[in-house]
Simulated scan of single mutants.
Amino acid sequence: MAFTLDFSTPTPLGYFASLVRDDDLLPLFEAAASIAQDEYPDLDVQQVLGDVDQMVARVKRRCPEDAGALQRLRVLNQFFFRDMGFGGNVNNYYDPDNSYLNAVLRTRRGIPISLAVLWLELAQGLGLKARGVNFPGHFMIKINLPNGQVVIDPFTGQSLSREDLSERLEPYKRRNGLVDDFDVPVGLYLQAASPREILARMLRNLKEIHRTQEDWLRLIAVQDRLIVLLPDAWAEYRDRGLAWAELGDLRHAVEDLETFVEHADDALERGAIEQRLQQLRRALN
């Protein structure tokens, strides 16, 4: 029996799917960098990885071999936030480029989560025990040191005390009724986020930008990735279906909305989408 070998280049979505298939082997930085291929189709992700490897080598040369974790952390923060000048894009926070790591490397500007993903890759190269944190409204970094834990705001490089974190949480807690008897400790908001959770948050940031701008084609590209990343997140099928409907592609809209209705738990939401489905089916026929 003869076998045919396929040497064709995978599509950007196929490449992303191969990276996020296995939680234990998921390469966060590479998968995050590959998101930009939707906007930059000629992007060489391996070149981006190579550029960051060079940054790791540079910061490593600044650390004595016997440097402790705290010293390595100080060296990294000096290198990243001061010498390289990375920081938050305060002038154009909702620019999609803030979520594309190739653009962040070029402009040295990003949003908390994209800056954190880059910082974490450098921290890993220095052997620091650092993780991303899905803090409400603002992604954070936490670093475990021999004498305790440090929490850093990747937007500014500022180290945050427990009081700082509590103050930042207050508006979120009030909005969600998490006060008095329903209050919970700050530590519960500092759980480490998995690579899959970080990628989902990055994509949902882009999703919100595209939805606000009614950029349905770009939104659908993001939804494709979210569905690959989170195949059981049925609301993502709903949102992709509604975007297809906005574009006038009723067949794809119906397929996605039927998938949502079949699996959705919320009866109220399911009922609203069933009404929309009836309208779309009538338009199709």
Rank of each mutant, 00 (worst) to 15 (best):
G148H: 12
R175V: 08
L145G: 03
F155H: 11
D181A: 09
G187M: 06
G125A: 13
A130M: 08
V179Q: 09
V151W: 01
L178G: 08
W119Y: 15
L128K: 11
D164Y: 05
N176P: 02
S159W: 09
A116N: 09
L128A: 04
V151L: 04
N147Q: 14
L145R: 08
D183A: 15
W119E: 15
Q158E: 15
D183S: 12
G127C: 04
W119G: 02
T156K: 01
S161W: 02
L160M: 11
A123P: 09
A116Y: 00
H138T: 03
A130S: 13
F135R: 12
I143R: 01
G137D: 05
L118G: 01
G127N: 01
P136T: 07
D180A: 14
F182R: 14
L178M: 12
L118Y: 02
G137E: 10
R174I: 15
E167V: 11
L169V: 00
F182D: 13
D181G: 07
S159I: 14
M140N: 10
E163C: 09
L118I: 04
V150S: 02
D181T: 06
T156W: 04
D183P: 04
Q158R: 10
V117D: 02
Q158N: 12
H138Y: 08
R131M: 05
Q124L: 15
G177F: 00
L160D: 00
E163V: 01
F182L: 14
N134Y: 02
L145M: 03
L118N: 00
P146I: 10
S166M: 06
L128Y: 07
L169T: 02
G187E: 15
K173W: 05
A116C: 07
L122R: 07
V179E: 13
Y189H: 03
M140C: 06
I143C: 14
E167W: 03
E170T: 12
M140D: 00
L115W: 13
A130L: 13
D181Y: 06
W119K: 05
E121P: 00
G177Y: 01
L115V: 06
Y189T: 03
L160T: 07
R168Q: 07
L120P: 00
N134T: 09
P154Y: 06
L126S: 02
P146D: 07
P146W: 10
G132Q: 02
P185V: 06
Y172P: 00
D183E: 14
Y189F: 15
E167S: 10
Q149G: 02
L118D: 05
V151G: 00
E163M: 04
D153T: 02
R131I: 08
G187T: 14
L122I: 10
G157Y: 02
V186A: 04
Q124W: 12
P136F: 11
P154S: 08
V117Y: 09
L145N: 07
L165F: 07
D180T: 11
N134R: 09
L145A: 10
L178F: 06
Q158L: 03
V150Y: 10
V184C: 03
P185C: 10
D164P: 01
F155S: 14
L145I: 07
D180M: 11
L178P: 12
A116L: 07
D183N: 13
L169A: 11
F155K: 06
I141E: 01
V151S: 08
F155L: 14
E163T: 10
D183F: 06
